[in-house]
């Protein structure tokens, strides 16, 4: 545990050692505010809730989480520090979890900075704060899933741009999985169970259930197990690359 915390602290501090953290947080807040107020017309809806805010999260995270996650392993490979890190006397699991956790807490910090919106709706009306809290948690979990995928892709390459593009493409598949556009394309030929399986991978469907106010256990299990699987895969990728 203390080893995970050491990796986490180093990695988290690395975000703030460069302008990356400031640029990321500014861009994130600007985009999310722009979408909430201008695209979703937050004020014209006449409802004291944050659904206009949360509905954009899957799309924003799709691009911004790979931006946080792309450096996690690719940068270590590029600079050679991976050789230092991987010859320390700790299990690869601690390294993988510590790095992912740093990105996840950083994403949590970005979410925390959107709190003024929550305060605003409480000032303007009386929203269901339970739903909002659940939505924040769901959003953070979804961010963690995008990040775990990004970290995994980052372990495959020393090129951060490739890591970014790969993570966006894979994340896009998870976002689009529940859409009729995708499902109607596979329905004619794939067995029902495959169609069912693909549609159940949808980030948006799971996230929507949480934001609708039912903090659904299956949705939570979905995100948790996706994160666990991606972290496991991340460890495997690092092990296999040793033998290559």
């Amino acid at each position: 545990m203390s080893m995970i915390m050491r990796v986490f602290r180093r990695e988290f501090a690395a975000y703030f050692a460069t302008p990356l953290a400031a640029v990321f947080l500014t861009v994130f807040l600007a985009i999310i505010a722009g979408m909430t107020f201008f695209l979703a017309n937050f004020f014209d809806r006449g409802q004291a809730d944050l659904s206009a805010f949360f509905m954009w999260h899957p799309w924003i995270f799709l691009v911004l989480m790979p931006a946080i996650g792309m450096r996690l392993w690719a940068e270590e490979r590029r600079s050679g520090t991976i050789e230092l890190l991987m010859t320390l006397p700790v299990s690869t699991w601690y390294l993988v979890i510590g790095k992912w956790l740093a990105g996840w807490v950083f994403a949590g910090l970005a979410l925390l900075l959107t709190m003024p919106l929550w305060i605003t709706v409480n000032y303007l009306g009386s929203p269901d704060n339970g739903v909002i809290l659940a939505s924040y948690l769901g959003s953070w979990l979804m961010a963690g899933s995008f990040l775990a995928i990004s970290a995994c892709v980052s372990a495959l390459t020393k090129n951060q741009v490739l890591a970014f593009i790969g993570a966006v493409v894979i994340g896009f598949l998870f976002v689009m999985a529940g859409f009729d556009l995708v499902l109607s394309a596979i329905q004619p030929w794939a067995p029902a169970i495959v169609v069912e399986a693909i549609s159940s991978m949808s980030f948006i469907a799971h996230f929507q259930r949480i934001t609708e106010g039912v903090l659904e256990v299956p949705a939570l299990i979905f995100f948790f197990s996706l994160i666990a699987f991606a972290l496991w895969l991340n460890v495997q990728i690092l092990q296999v690359r040793k033998a290559a």
Partner: peptide, 24 residues
């Protein structure tokens, strides 16, 4: 390792403390 790779964004002290901690 070859080329003595180090974390460029850390201070010397913080880096050596990190490695010492990781080495138990």
């Amino acid at each position: 390792p070859e080329g003595a790779p180090l974390y460029p964004d850390m201070s010397v002290g913080a880096f050596l403390e990190f490695v010492a901690g990781m080495r138990g």
